[in-house]
Each structure stands twice: as structure tokens, then as C-alpha cells.
Amino acid sequence: MTKDIDSLDSLAAAIPLLKAALPVEASIALCDMRQFTAYWPGERINLNIKPGQLLQEGEPLLLALRSGRALRAEVPAEYYGFAFTGTATPVKDGNGRIIGGIAVQVRRHSELIEIADRIAESLTQAGEQVASIAAGSGGLSDASNDLLGLSRQAEENAYGADGVVRMIKEVADQTHLLGINAAIEAAHAGEAGAGFGIVASEIRKLSGQTVSSTNSIRGTLDAFKKLTAQMSGSIERIAETGQSQAASTEELSAMIREIREMSAKLNEFAKQL
């Protein structure tokens, strides 16, 4: 409580020096028992108080005058467009009689707090998105590995089918040779072997068709093996990319968590200013 003041005029004379000496921007209002007598606004904090303006019911200064106690209040931005911390202190003369009051308003660093809150909110949303991406990357990597396994199995099956085709061709070659031998024997038999010669001719024809078909199948299998090999290579690259992306998103998540912690500390620091 300010006391031993000769008069409000003497206090008013000292306030400009006091205001200039403050390490923070502030506005200062002085009043007697019923009205404001002087006001010194700050560059960024101005409540537009006019000398002669009557104290209103509920005014912190009027409450301080009536209670004889200093008051402090945190005024939100809804009232004046910016948040500030205000104090209201009774002023006593040398006889201990309250002759007026002094109010000091210091603008809070609400912008800094708001920025810190927005950063924290944005980081939370970014963290959720990164977590979703990381989960998707992990799923992509797993699916790629499964697909790679199936592709390699298909490639192995193609090589297995290639063995079956070789065996069919060998049977066809043997059948063709058998048809030639049968035709020779039919020729030796003369007219009696004419029917057998027709059968031998059909056998050779069938074996020739079989060889042609196996060659076609072999070409298809070769193309299939080449495609599955290319597909396996592509899937391997996709799997590697997914794993790399998952690792990168995990590092990014760690960075976001660290920045979020720094933002929380900034918020606490701003509230203490």
C-alpha cells in the first residue's frame, strides 16, 4: 500500500519518472476517492481513461479504496482487445488516511502464449498424421514382403513347370521316333501293314504338334519368368522404400515430440512474464 504521500499532485509528478524506469511497458492511472485524476497510457496498452472520469461500481480501484487493500487481477482480452495484469493500490497520506489510489496495467504476453498454444496444437495434429503415415508405411512394407514372397513362389513354380515341359518334349520326341520306326516296319510289311502305317503317320503328326505346343508353352513360361523376376525387383524396391519411409517418419515423430515439449516450456515461460 502506498503511504506517507503528501498529496496526489506530488505523486502525479513522480509517476512519469516511475513509468520510464519500469522495465516493462505499462499504463498508470491515478484517482482520488471518486474519479480518475490523471492517466499515463503505454504505447501498446491504452485503456482510454480520461481525467474526471468517475469510478464505476466494480472498478478495481474503487474496491481497493473501500477495502483498504491492494488488489491484483488478470484481465482477459475480451474487455479491451488485449490481455493484461492490473493492480489497484490505495494511497495514504502521512496520517494514514486513504486519499486516492493508483492503478498499474501491464500487458501480458498473451500473443506469445497464443502462438505457443497454436504451435502445440499444430504439432499434435502433425504428430497424429505422421503416426498414421508411419502405420501405413509399416503396413505397406508388410504387404510388399508378402507380395514378394508370392512373386518368388510364382517364379519357382514357373521353373518347375519348365521341367514338366521338358519332360513332355522328351516324350514327344520319343513318340515321334516310335512313329518313324512303326512307319518303317509298316513299309516292310507291305500291303498288310498299310493300316499300321496310317496309325504311325498320325502318331508322328501328333508328336510334331506336341513339340510345337511345348515350344509355345516354353516361350510363354520364359516370358512369365522374366515378368515375375521384374515384378520381384519392383516389389523389393517398394518394400525398401516402405521401410525407409517408416524409419523416416519415426525420426520425424521424435522431432515433433521434442518440439512439442519445447512449445510447452515456451508456454509456461510466457505465462511467467
Rank of each mutant, 00 (worst) to 15 (best):
A239T: 01
G242K: 04
I203W: 09
A29R: 03
I256W: 14
S10P: 00
K226N: 07
S151C: 05
P60H: 04
V165E: 09
D9P: 04
F84H: 13
F269W: 11
V91I: 10
I115L: 06
G193V: 01
I49C: 00
L47P: 01
F196S: 11
G86Y: 09
G163H: 07
D117K: 10
S232N: 07
E240P: 06
R204V: 01
D142S: 15
L63M: 15
A126M: 15
V75A: 05
N157A: 12
Q174E: 03
E240S: 11
E114H: 11
I45K: 04
L47K: 07
Q209L: 15
I99T: 02
T85G: 11
A14K: 03
G127M: 06
E250Y: 02
A77W: 02
E128S: 08
A131C: 01
A14N: 04
I235T: 04
L17Q: 10
I168M: 12
H109W: 02
V165A: 14
V106R: 03
M1A: 12
S248I: 02
L54G: 07
I28P: 02
A73H: 01
E185D: 12
V211F: 05
I203L: 15
T249S: 08
G195A: 11
L252M: 14
S234D: 13
G195F: 08
R237E: 12
L147S: 08
S201V: 05
Q35H: 09
K226V: 07
L147E: 02
E156K: 09
D32L: 00
F82D: 10
I115K: 05
V130H: 06
R152F: 09
K271P: 00
I119K: 03
Q245C: 13
D162I: 05
F224E: 06
M1Q: 04
M255F: 05
I256C: 09
G136R: 13
A135Y: 07
G197S: 06
S7D: 11
L61G: 04
D162L: 09
G81T: 06
Q105E: 08
Q174I: 02
N46L: 01
K50R: 01
M231Q: 08
L8Q: 09
A13C: 03
T85S: 15
R166L: 12
L221T: 00
H109I: 00
E261Y: 14
N48V: 08
G138V: 01
K50M: 01
T2Q: 12
I198S: 12
G179F: 08
A13Q: 05
A131L: 01
K226E: 07
I28A: 05
I217N: 01
K92H: 12
V171N: 10
F196K: 07
A247L: 05
L71M: 11
M33N: 10
G193S: 03
A183S: 14
Q153P: 02
A172N: 15
L11V: 01
R107I: 03
T89L: 15
T2N: 03
I49M: 05
A246S: 14
K3C: 13
L17F: 15
S141W: 03
G242Q: 02
E25D: 10
I259Y: 15
A182R: 04
T37V: 13
L61D: 05
V91C: 02
T124D: 09
V165P: 11
A38H: 12
R108H: 01
W40S: 08
K92C: 14
N215M: 10
L47C: 05
T124N: 09
G100F: 04
E156P: 00
A14F: 12
R66N: 14
E74A: 10
E59V: 08
K205P: 00
A21R: 04
G219N: 03
G149A: 13
L147W: 02
